[in-house]
Design a protein around this nucleic acid. Structure first.
Length: 430
DNA sequence: TCTGGGGTCCTAGGACCC
DNA sequence: TCTGGGGTCCTAGGACCC
């Protein structure tokens, strides 16, 4: 992913450390970004070809009466001014005839996998940057494609995705991820745009600073206060000036980005680093009891997903968004990773109690996040019995596994524990 | 207009260790 | 009495992305 703060600025020409294998690198990379157009809307239509498939005005997001926002809108609805992240209520005022449907999550995940499989036929490295974006590195395919123009390859890939999954895409191409990403924006909707090596600097000059991935509203405002709105405005400053003003790492990052310099590799994605489940309530919750009840459901959801991956987690985070939109969180890292509803629930619940104690005001959103994962089959460090108490034991784990099996057979509401948290907290986690 | 849900990465201070 | 330097881990907050 493109990041505002790259961890290092390694010179790509630097000699590798001894022992690393030298791989021949082509002079310029051939990268593509395949971006699905209004992905959620397309998937919703594919799922319901006779109903939604015939509609023109579609908003995918929360319920019309709830607190949801627009996740994706059809081009018809966008013509009325509907945009992503806009509250659904507001969107419906702009476009009252629009049909509102929830995000079809499982179908999106399925279509995502189908698209990836299609792309893997064309490129040795496919990186899913999000649910609807894929970077392709066509390294080593020069002979296979017999010198075919990158734009022609891109069009064949586009056709294959459409033919095999029914999803229309826009494709950007170039020698850097940043360039491919911006080229895909230019290509929308449904086109292909490739920037030739050497044309990057000129290509960048057509953008506003806020168009650059990694420049969000806060950073854009800071730049605007200096009178900088476009890439062209900012190009007159050298790296020293930008670093003095923005700090070393951010200054260097912006300097390179303005010029289209980006040697971030395309890599197959590693496993997720965190999992979270959260809920925004239709009405703010005003009591710890009510929050604890909702917390248990979230713990159940996120813990089930954790076990589905075959992972355990060491870090548990409970977070809230207060009624005034202030976000707060507390986390706890255990000495040993856990996976059971009971162990995770005990920690999450204790954290919630502390959050509430510090600021007992109405809560609009509650969430539980798990991170610091360990594979279940990774050998655990020996524990000194009697010195530290385990956060969970074999019984907790087998109970959780049994509940997972029942939910797998009879649905997710088949087993709902009456009480994950013991009334007396005699067994504090270590 | 009143702001979802699921992610990633960065910063900065403090604890702790050598 | 006045006080090193570097590294890692944990915690809380925040920007940003789709």
């Amino acid at each position: 992913m493109d990041r505002p703060h790259p961890p290092s600025d390694r010179n790509s020409l630097a000699q590798p450390a001894s022992g690393t294998v030298l791989e021949p690198q082509p002079a310029t990379r051939r990268l593509l970004l395949v971006d699905c157009d209004m992905f959620f809307v397309q998937v919703a239509k594919l799922e319901d070809p006779e109903g939604l498939g015939r509609e023109e005005l579609i908003i995918v997001g929360g319920r019309p009466e709830g607190r949801g926002v627009v996740a994706s809108a059809s081009y018809g609805a966008r013509a009325y001014g509907v945009r992503s992240a806009m509250p659904v209520r507001h969107a419906l005022r702009l476009c009252p005839r629009a049909v509102v449907v929830p995000v079809p999550r499982s179908a999106c995940a399925r279509v995502h996998r189908q698209i990836r499989q299609t792309l893997e036929v064309f490129a040795p490295i496919v990186e899913a940057a999000s649910i609807d974006e894929f970077y392709l590195d066509l390294c080593g395919t020069e002979r296979l494609y017999r010198g075919e123009e990158l734009a022609a390859t891109a069009r064949r890939i586009q056709q294959a995705v459409l033919g095999q999954t029914g999803v229309a895409t826009s494709v950007g191409g170039g020698a850097q991820r940043l360039i491919a990403k911006l080229a895909a924006e230019v290509a929308k909707p449904g086109g292909v745009h490739v920037v030739r090596a050497g044309d990057e600097a000129a290509f960048m000059c057509r953008f506003q600073l806020v168009d650059l991935p990694g420049v969000g509203p806060v950073f854009a405002e800071k730049l605007r206060r200096r009178g900088l709105r476009t890439v062209r405005d900012a190009l007159v400053y050298d790296q020293t000036a930008l670093s003095l003003w923005l700090g070393e790492s951010r200054g260097r990052w912006l300097y390179r980005r303005l010029r289209g310099l980006d040697d971030t590799p395309v890599k197959t994605r590693a496993e997720a680093k965190s999992l979270r489940h959260e809920r925004t309530f239709a009405e703010d919750l005003h009591s710890l009891d009510a929050l604890q009840t909702r917390l248990l459901q979230l713990v159940l959801e996120v813990a089930t997903e954790l076990r589905g991956h075959g992972w355990r987690a060491r870090t548990i985070t409970t977070y809230v968004r207060d009624r005034d939109f202030r976000d707060r969180q507390m986390s706890r890292t255990l000495d040993e990773p856990v996976e059971s509803d009971r162990a995770i629930g005990r920690v999450a619940s204790a954290l919630l109690r502390r959050l509430w104690g510090r600021r007992p005001v109405g809560v609009r959103l509650l969430g539980v996040s798990l991170s610091n994962f360990v594979f279940v089959h990774t050998p655990q460090q020996m524990r000194l019995e009697g010195i530290t108490a385990a956060a969970e034991d074999a019984r907790d784990r087998s109970l959780a596994a049994a509940a997972d099996r029942l939910r797998g057979r009879f649905g997710k509401d088949a087993v709902v524990p009456a009480r994950i948290i013991p009334r007396s907290d005699r067994r504090e986690p270590p």
